[in-house]
């Protein structure tokens, strides 16, 4: 995949967070390209560094957190870009939505005011035109009687509606990239289903690229075009969504899929991944997944295996990727 095609190009992204008990290397050498119009899923278990990565893309980390590497957007490196210049990109070209909309919405401004603020800031639209556009946006995200709901405050909206409002605000600037950090984790499945379909429709209509952070493999299967699997601060596998579910090429991905219940095995024991993820304050020896891995050998204990390209558009950081068995179960 040539880099010229990508909207966002991430190289050697590193994030180090100082903590009282030593420096936490939360993101360790992440590389990926986000292509135009694609939904890229970023999955991994809690603490694997998904949110930290996303925040680093937009330069949202503050001192003393250290971010290094390259995040290229529109020919410029966003890492280390002065705050003033970053602001032209942030919100305008790259928007972000969060898991908990209530904390991201301003409780004392109406939804309408918040959408219009974004319109004014990033698109220079004001007055009547802004009002009309705000109504249109709220309508676009599927809020009934949009014109009257513009005057509502966030607390007057239900959880699902808040998440829609968040999306409407994020879309006001007509961004080219939408970063979504677990946008549906706090929602019910029926509402989650609505929001995800909405995202897919908007991606289609507006030609945006989306990075969707989630830990729900079902959401990945239903929404993403490509998937990047994160473990202990690193990408360990990237693949097209169909390939990933059919034949994982990293022992961790395989472990994740296998730990889910499968259709024909009512009340049979599940197959968990044993142990827990490593402490990112100590650099792991070899592959970070080794201590929990069923396929690990001494070959995994050398230098930490890098993400290497395989055939097609896949890449893996698993030494034994060729020996991994198929998931081999009926997924539901």
């Amino acid at each position: 995949m040539s880099a010229a095609e990508s909207v966002l190009r991430v190289r050697d992204l590193d994030v180090r967070i100082p903590t009282p008990r030593g420096e936490l290397h939360a993101v360790r050498g992440v590389n990926f390209d986000l292509r135009p119009g694609e939904v890229l899923g970023l999955v991994g278990e809690s603490g694997s560094g998904k949110s930290v990565t996303l925040r680093a893309l937009l330069g949202l980390h503050r001192k003393p957190v250290r971010v290094t590497g390259e995040v290229t957007y529109g020919g410029h490196n966003l890492v280390g870009m002065p705050e003033r210049k970053l602001r032209d990109v942030r919100g305008a070209q790259i928007s972000m939505i969060f898991q908990e909309p209530m904390t991201a919405l301003n409780p004392v401004l109406t939804i309408g005011e918040q959408i219009r603020e974004n319109l004014r800031e990033h698109r220079g639209v004001t007055g009547r035109a802004a009002l009309a556009r705000a109504t249109e946006l709220l309508d676009l995200v599927g809020i009934p009687s949009a014109a009257t709901r513009l005057a509502d405050y966030p607390h007057q909206f239900s959880g699902g509606m808040r998440q829609r409002a968040m999306i409407a605000i994020a879309l006001a600037s007509e961004p080219r990239v939408l970063l979504a950090d677990e946008p549906t984790t706090a929602l019910d499945v029926t509402i989650q289903d609505q929001i995800l379909r909405l995202l897919l429709r908007l991606r289609e209509q507006l030609g945006m690229s989306v990075v969707l952070v989630t830990h729900d493999l079902g959401v990945v299967a239903q929404t993403c075009d490509r998937v990047a699997v994160m473990y202990a601060g690193r990408l360990v596998e990237t693949a097209g969504v169909t390939d990933l579910f059919r034949q994982p090429r990293h022992a961790y991905t395989l472990g994740l899929l296998r730990s889910l219940p499968d259709a024909g095995a009512h009340r049979r024991p599940l197959r968990p991944i044993t142990g827990s993820p490593p402490d990112l304050r100590d650099a792991p020896r070899g592959c970070a997944f080794f201590p929990r891995c069923a396929f690990g050998t001494d070959a995994c204990l050398g230098a930490e295996p890098p993400l290497v390209p395989l055939s097609g558009e896949r890449a893996t950081a698993c030494v034994h990727h060729a020996q991994l068995p198929a998931v081999g179960e009926v997924l539901v």
Partner: peptide
Amino acid sequence: AAAPHLDPA
């Protein structure tokens, strides 16, 4: 129907 199915197909 709303529960996301694990099969991308």
